[in-house]
Design a binder for these strands. Structure first.
Lengths: 230, 230
DNA sequence: GGAATAGTGTCTCTAAGACATTATTCT
DNA sequence: AGAATAATGTCTTAGAGACACTATTCC
């Protein structure tokens, strides 16, 4: 069987103490005027990841430099698109806080929206994008546990407090600063000291780190158990 | 862009103390006569998971009852298929040891092959199926750590020794029987006692368990660290 | 000096790793 | 009785959680 092929993007960042996702207002039918995840058709002779990078740049002006981009999952329900058989390969991007996105060609408007609200209202996003968002957020939360990927939310250099803030916002919990400090500094390859430190008004300056070369955390940093789970 | 859409399957099982994968000998070009992962085109109006279930049954006679089937990843390199643009949604299936598969319509032959050998020889399988196999095996190994999915390799009722054997074969390690026993029986929801026990010649009978209702293990059962990793 | 933030130290408890012993069947 | 396999128990140690203190900057 032959199908139209698109990529969609769950682009997450941490802004103003909130986990936010990039959404665009659709400028063309179907779902014209509705909010949706950025995405679009894969071009001839174009790889899937390449298409995701291109769509992200074209439609929103966001570049993934310094961030992280990976394939999330593929959604191919026969009825997911009213136009016919459209299969989408969803991708997950984690990026540092960036200047407000600029809407591209296909999108009437692009903006950051708090994830929490979108997770509640399953009818806001077009197509099956609510499900894709749910899966993307869960993937991001899980990946923070066993990979150093939280650094993708930070800029090039960051402090341990900033990194901890990322964990707290993505997981929606609070973490003990001292135990967190011990954990991340004792995990080999997680962080790389730069030697420099912050300048700020009031308070001791903080060491600035870069992401290390580790790709997996051993042992993992588990998020606090859900209340009522055990 | 429009593309042909297929599903491919990494079907793993534990046979004769070996992790084995189901492969078929291709009965039609391209790669006619070469070994490949089972799979085929998605039908009109058919969901991706439905297509995977159907192909598994059609092409090999294997049914996934009692096992596990999930989406693995999607492979869409423009050059991955000489026929043109063919995007495949790979799936991962974990099944109990089953009677020898029967080749279906598209396949000249179907058989179980030890994974270890295929991982070494990256040129045996057609298309990019070696890469898909690598990803599938790694996914399976990782999932045993934080999910009770090893039970999918066992039949309906199984002993703790059988379950441990699955872990040992999939991970390629040996595990301490006593610590393993303590771990799986103390993790809530992992196992469900049936009350019955095995009958065998020589040796104390073993309790028979069924898979519990837990879908995630807390805390995870980590495989022994790779030598030279830390 | 005082406020603010960064970093270190200590105690406890859970759970994993290593290892010995007891229990229940069969021949 | 002896072989074979299942199940339980103990000691040690690594690491997470809870919590108090010291350090360095700015005003």
């Amino acid at each position: 069987m032959t199908a139209a092929l698109t990529v969609d993007l769950v682009v997450l960042t941490v802004r103003d103490d909130r986990l936010t996702v990039l959404v665009v207002k659709r400028g063309a039918p179907p779902f014209r005027g509705r909010w949706a995840l950025p995405g679009g058709f894969v071009a001839e002779g174009e790889g899937l990841l390449d298409a995701a990078v291109r769509e992200l740049r074209e439609e929103t002006g966001v570049h993934t430099i310094g961030g992280h981009l990976e394939q999330l999952a593929t959604y191919g329900d026969p009825k997911r698109d009213p136009r016919g058989r459209v299969v989408t390969v969803a991708h997950l991007a984690l990026v540092p806080d960036l200047p407000p996105p600029t809407a591209g060609t296909d999108a009437a408007e692009a903006r950051w929206v708090e994830v929490a609200g979108l997770l509640e209202q399953s009818r806001v996003l077009a197509f099956d994008h609510h499900r894709i968002l749910v899966d993307g957020v869960e993937r991001a939360r899980a990946k923070l546990e066993y990979s150093p990927l939280a650094t993708a939310f930070c800029g090039d250099g960051f402090t341990i407090a900033e990194l901890r803030h990322v964990y707290e916002v993505v997981w929606g919990t609070t973490l003990d600063p001292r135990n967190f400090h011990r954990k991340v500094t004792s995990t080999p390859g997680f962080l790389q000291p730069t030697g420099s430190s912050t300048t700020r008004d009031g308070g001791r300056p903080a060491q600035i780190y870069r992401r290390g070369h580790a790709r997996l955390l051993h042992p993992a940093m588990l998020r606090p158990a859900e209340p009522g789970c055990p």
